[in-house]
Each structure stands twice: as C-alpha cells, then as structure tokens.
C-alpha cells in the first residue's frame, strides 16, 4: 500500500506523458514504415520493412522541403534581427533616458501588447497588396519588425541596470550607442536569449500570416509548406506525409531537447511579465 502510494504519482505522470508523446512516436514510426504496413496499427517500434529512406525521399521530392526550411530560416532570422535592432534602443531610451513623450510611448507599448497580429492582418494585407509586395520575404516579415513585447521585456530588464555605471561610462567618453549595446544589453543577455527563443519559435510555427501573403510554393515557410504538402497528399501516402511532418517539426524540437531550460524560459516568458 505504501509502495503504491509512492509510485502512484509516477504511474499517473507516465500515463499522461505517454498520451502527450504518442503523436510524436506515431509520426516517427509511420515515417519509417512501408506503405504496405498502413493497416498495421500496432505500436511495435520496429517496422517489418524499413522504408524510411523512400518516405523521406518522397517527402523531399514532391515538395521542396529544403526550400521550406531555408525560407523559415530567412524569415525567422530576418524578423529577429530587425526586432532586436529596433527594440533594444527604444527600450534603453524608455528605461534610462528622459525625453518628452516617454510616458505616452510606454502606455502605447502596453496597449499594443494586447493587440494580436491577427487583428492587424487585414489592413496590412491591403497595404502590401496595394504596394505590390505580396509573395515576398518582406511581406512575410514586415508586420513583425516591431515587437512591443521585446520593448516591454527589455525595458523591465534594463531598468534594473545601475545608473551609476551608465553615468561613469558617459564620463569615460562612451557614446550612448556603446552604452546601450555594449554595457546595458550585456547585462540582459538572459532576457535576450529568452526573447530570441520566443521569437524564433513563434515565427517558425506561424501559419496565419504566411497563409495570407504567400501563395507560391517556393516562398512558403515550413508550416505553409506542410499545409501545401498535406493538401497534395490527401491520404495517399501517410509514410511520406509523416516524414514531411517529422522534417518540419524536428529543428525546433531538437533545439528544445538540447537547450530545455532556455526554451522553457523563453516560451513561457509571456507568463512572467
């Protein structure tokens, strides 16, 4: 009885975890099974014939998987770079410099935090359509060039940087740019890392906005590519479909497994604010 009490939490957690992980397991398992085993619903991990090669080859040949990945990389990298470039100086100014309009801008940042991008999609789409910019990388990235969340996060983090060091640096002849990027940001590297994770994961997995501005296969980021792929492969070849899903899910999941702590901190950061 006492033993049962001791192991019961583990048992419950293990059952729950099995349910949570079942989709991942099934995805990888199917991706290496041959199409003839499609009616085999057993969870036995070893396929009768290993068809991983063919499935992955088919996934990569019927749609440009590598191109999707590259698109994802370009879009996530571009968004993150511009977000950091615009939000760090703004957050520094809000946290450490006094200028007219500062309080209003802070209030606007907070207000903008509640506005989901889906609410802005329509006018942004109209604007980009008028400017003939649909189906470009720029269109995919533009709405995310400013992250009010990054400004909020860095503002909270920069505020705790000691004013004395900034004043000493000014006396030593540092420019404000150098103080901002080389001193203050250096003191907030954990926030930067967490925000990078947050931003990359959010935009790698985003479907809504790419679906609006992109309809060319060669520009599709991974989720949109996956949608094109699954629409094209309606039920015909689950092995290849699961291979494609594995390829698209793998980068973020692997990064998560490698840097678990940073990931959890980054993605749940929204919870700490």
């Amino acid at each position: 009885m006492a033993r049962l009490r001791h192991y019961l939490p583990h048992l419950v957690l293990a059952l729950g975890a099995a349910a949570m992980l079942l989709p991942f397991y099934w995805m990888v398992l199917t991706s290496i099974r041959s199409p003839s085993e499609i009616f085999d619903v057993s969870l036995w991990p070893v396929p009768k014939t290993f068809s991983g090669g063919e499935n992955y080859a088919q996934a990569a040949s019927s749609v440009p998987m590598a191109r999707f990945m590259l698109n994802g990389l370009i879009v996530c990298g571009g968004i993150l770079a511009v977000q950091v470039l615009t939000s760090v100086p703004a957050a520094y100014a809000l946290a450490k410099l006094r200028f007219p309009g500062r309080r209003i801008m802070l209030a606007l940042v907070i207000a903008a935090l509640c506005v989901p991008v889906q609410a802005l999609a329509l006018p942004l789409f109209v604007g980009l359509a008028r400017a003939q910019l649909l189906n470009t990388y720029f269109a995919m990235m533009a709405p995310f060039f400013l992250s009010v969340f990054a400004i909020f996060l860095f503002h909270q983090s920069f505020r705790s940087y000691p004013d004395e060091i900034i004043e000493a640096a000014r006396m030593d002849g540092f420019s404000e740019m150098e103080i901002c990027w080389r001193l203050v940001l250096r003191g907030s590297l954990p926030s930067l890392a967490a925000f990078a994770v947050f931003s990359v994961v959010a935009h790698w997995n985003d479907l809504y906005w790419p679906m609006i501005v992109i309809n060319k296969t060669e520009l599709a980021p991974p989720p949109l590519g996956m949608l094109f792929f699954s629409d094209a492969e309606t039920g015909a070849n689950y092995g290849a479909l699961m291979a494609g899903a594995t390829i698209i899910t793998a980068p973020i999941v692997l990064c998560f497994l490698l840097a678990r702590r940073h990931f959890i901190a980054g993605i749940t950061m929204t919870g700490v604010k």
Partner: peptide
C-alpha cells in the same frame, strides 16, 4: 509535457 508546446501545430495536426 512541454514537447507539444514547441512542435509545429500544422505538422502535428496532420499527425
């Protein structure tokens, strides 16, 4: 338990 949070939902919905 956290793994599904990071996974691309489009791919996982297919699964």
């Amino acid at each position: 338990y956290f793994l599904p949070v990071t996974a691309t939902l489009v791919a996982m919905a297919t699964v």
